[in-house]
Structure formats: structure tokens, C-alpha cells
Computed example of a mutant assay.
Amino acid sequence: MISPKISVILPVFNQENYIGKAIESVLSQSFDEFELIIVNDGSTDNTLDIINQFDDSRIKLINQENLGPGASRNNALRIAEGEYVMYLDGDDWYHPNALEIAYCEASSKDTDLTFYQMINYDDKTGEIYPNDWFDMSTFDESFENRVFSPDETPGSIFDLSVGVCQKIYKSSFLRDIDARFPEGIFFEDMPFFYYVYLKAERISIIKRHLYYRRKHDASITHVVDCKFLDTVPAGQELMRIFIENEWYEMYKFDLLAYKINGPRFALRDIEEKCKIPLYNLIKMDYCEIKSSQYYDDFLNTLGPVKKKFFEDIIVSKDYEDFKTLNH
């Protein structure tokens, strides 16, 4: 059997209301040289029954206990046979020509990584609307219709969308750099993206909306609940990647601001019951930083608001004490 040109990886957990549309959007593509690897991540609703209703030889199904999105994507990537890899979330769907357009761009330009635009869909109102983040507004016209490298975007990498589903990746490139998602945490696509982006040598963009991103009440990023505790380990993993790959010095000014802001905004917005656990995680992290060689960098590079947050966390005795300091 000839290997497929694209492996579409679709992890899913308890998305019986949406998974049918996601699968249909792949099977009905104008481009048909693909395999669809669905990872049923321990769903307890009717998700698996809906998946099993699709009888198509291009579907590969992995059934596993609930391991989370990082492990699901890693397990699918291990068996992917496509020349390129694309990702789809179980509550989203593709434009009918998404695979064809993405493959033509990536293969003709021989890219390691190609971005395309996403567009938002509001599940309550049916409104479809763009935003600058998913429209890749960071990339101006000078980046269109050509190949570029990360060296051309040194001051703006933390303004890029980290969403794993917004790109098509060359499989051999992912294997060569041993690209893996952190497992056991949410926000796993953030450290994955920066590792892959900064390792890439050939990047391009497609200024077309190829992906529909559904916004609904149950989506991971819609409700700031205890999943946002994982902004701390995700930020720790990001620091490790930058340090181990010797990118730290070049990017530290923006990197440290980015690392502080994730948990800072999460602590501001997270549900009340999650505030103390998140504060405790942040405090442990910052106390480790204080005893590391990077402590002075945080003090010297953070802006006043982020620096005050950083220092208030360290000196506060508990969350209530922190609130009195940081108001």
C-alpha cells in the first residue's frame, strides 16, 4: 500500500456532540491521499459509538485510557505514516479544501512547518468571525509567498499562535528533532510549538482560513478552571526547552515576560476554588527560580507590573498575604 501524503491526528475525549462533524470534515476533503488517526482518549459518553459508525479504510482508531491530549497526540504520531502531519481537535472542523491547499503549499516549498489561518465559530450564536491572533497578523505581507526561518522573527515569536492545529508539519522533520508533546498537562501545545518553530529552517504561511475553531462552554480555554494550574508546569517546560537548546540568551527578555504572564493572568481569572492551589504552584516555581542562576535575569528584565507580581509571590506568606501586597 502506498503511504498517505498526510496523517490527520484527531484526539477526542467526550465530544459526542461534535466528533461527527470533525470526522466528516476530513473524510469529505477534496484531497483524499490521507489517513485519519483518531485517538479515543478514554471517552465515557457516546463518542466511541459515533466514531464506529464511520466505515472508511483511511481511518485508524486508537482506543486508550484517559491520558490527556499530549499523550494522545504522541501515540498517534508514533504510528503516523504520512509525509506530512496535521492536527484536528474533536470539536472543530476543516475547510473542504484544507488538506489540498496545505499539502500543495508545504510540498511545493519543501517546508518543515506551514501556518494557515483559523477562524472562530461561536456555538451559541452561529457567528463566524476572525481575530488577529488566528489570522497571523504578526506576519505582514513580506512573509507571504516565500520561505523564511525563525531568524527573521526574533522579536515577535511570543506573538504567534501556538495552536498545534494551525499548521502542517513535515513528518521527517518532526522525527529528526524528536518532537514530542509534554504528557499529563494541559497547554501542551505551547512548549511543543516553540521547540518545533525554533528548530525549523523552512517555514511558510497561507493567508486563508482553513480551520474552523468552535467556541463553546465546555472547551478547554473557555472556562478558566483548575486546568489552568497547568500554566505553571507548561511554563517550566518552556524554560527547560529554551535553556537546553541554547535559545535562552537570545530570547530571555520576551521569554521571561511570557512565562510570568501565563500564570499571572490565570491567577487573576481562575475560579475561586482554584486560586490557592495555583498560588501555591506559582510560589514553588518562583522560589526555585530565586535559588537559580536565572533569578537576576527576572529582576533585571521584567517590567514593573510583572516584576511586582514575581516579587510579591516570593515574599508573601500565603495567598491572602499575597492579595494584600498585590492589589
Results as ranks from 00 to 15, higher is better:
Asp89Ala: 10
Met284Gly: 13
Asn52Asp: 06
Glu201Lys: 08
Leu278Gln: 13
Phe54Ile: 07
Phe186Cys: 05
Asp189Met: 01
Asp56Met: 09
Thr221Tyr: 03
Phe322Ala: 04
Leu198Gly: 03
Asp178Arg: 12
Thr125Ala: 06
Gly68Asp: 07
Met1Trp: 01
Leu281Ile: 05
Glu35Ile: 05
Leu99Asn: 13
Pro277Ser: 09
Ser30Phe: 10
Tyr94Ile: 08
Val232Leu: 04
Asn261Phe: 13
Ala71Gln: 09
Gly70Asn: 11
Asp296Ile: 07
Thr125Ile: 06
Asp110Arg: 09
Glu24His: 03
Glu152Arg: 00
Ile276Val: 15
Ala257Gln: 15
Ala218Ile: 01
Phe181Asp: 04
Asn280Leu: 13
Tyr121Trp: 09
Ile276Ser: 11
Gly303Glu: 13
Phe186Leu: 06
Met86Tyr: 02
Phe115Gly: 12
Asp312Met: 09
Leu302Ser: 07
Trp133Phe: 13
Lys283Ile: 02
Pro150Asp: 04
Asp269Ala: 09
Val315His: 10
Thr301Phe: 06
Tyr211Phe: 06
Ile128Thr: 11
Asp89Trp: 06
Thr114Ser: 15
Gly262Val: 08
Gln117Pro: 00
Glu249Gln: 14
Val196Ser: 04
Ile62Glu: 03
Ile6Glu: 07
Phe192Trp: 15
Glu188Arg: 01
Ile6Leu: 07
Asp318Lys: 00
Ser28Ile: 07
Phe181Trp: 14
Leu36Lys: 00
Glu188Tyr: 02
Ala106His: 13
Ser142Cys: 04
Cys274Gly: 11
Ser149Thr: 13
Gly20Leu: 02
Ile220Asp: 03
Leu48Pro: 00
Gly42Phe: 05
Val224Ile: 10
His95Gly: 09
Leu10Met: 12
Lys290Val: 06
Lys60Tyr: 03
Leu48Thr: 03
Lys273Arg: 15
Gly42Gln: 07
Glu144Tyr: 12
Thr114Tyr: 12
Ile59Ser: 06
Phe181Ala: 03
Gln117Asn: 15
Asp112Ser: 14
Asn326Ile: 05
Cys226Ser: 15
Arg213Cys: 10
Glu105Thr: 15
Ala102Tyr: 11
Tyr121Arg: 10
Glu81Asn: 13
Leu61Gly: 06
Tyr319Ser: 08
Gly235Asp: 02
Ser171Phe: 13
Ala218His: 03
Arg264Trp: 09
Ser156Val: 10
Ile62Tyr: 00
Asp296Leu: 13
Asn63Ile: 15
Thr47Gly: 01
Ser171His: 13
Ile23Asp: 04
Val162Glu: 08
Lys323Pro: 08
Ile157Val: 14
Asp92Cys: 15
Ile50Val: 11
Phe34Arg: 04
Tyr295Thr: 03
Ile19Pro: 02
Gln293Met: 09
Phe143Leu: 05
Ser316Arg: 09
Tyr116Lys: 05
Lys323Asn: 15
Gln15Asn: 11
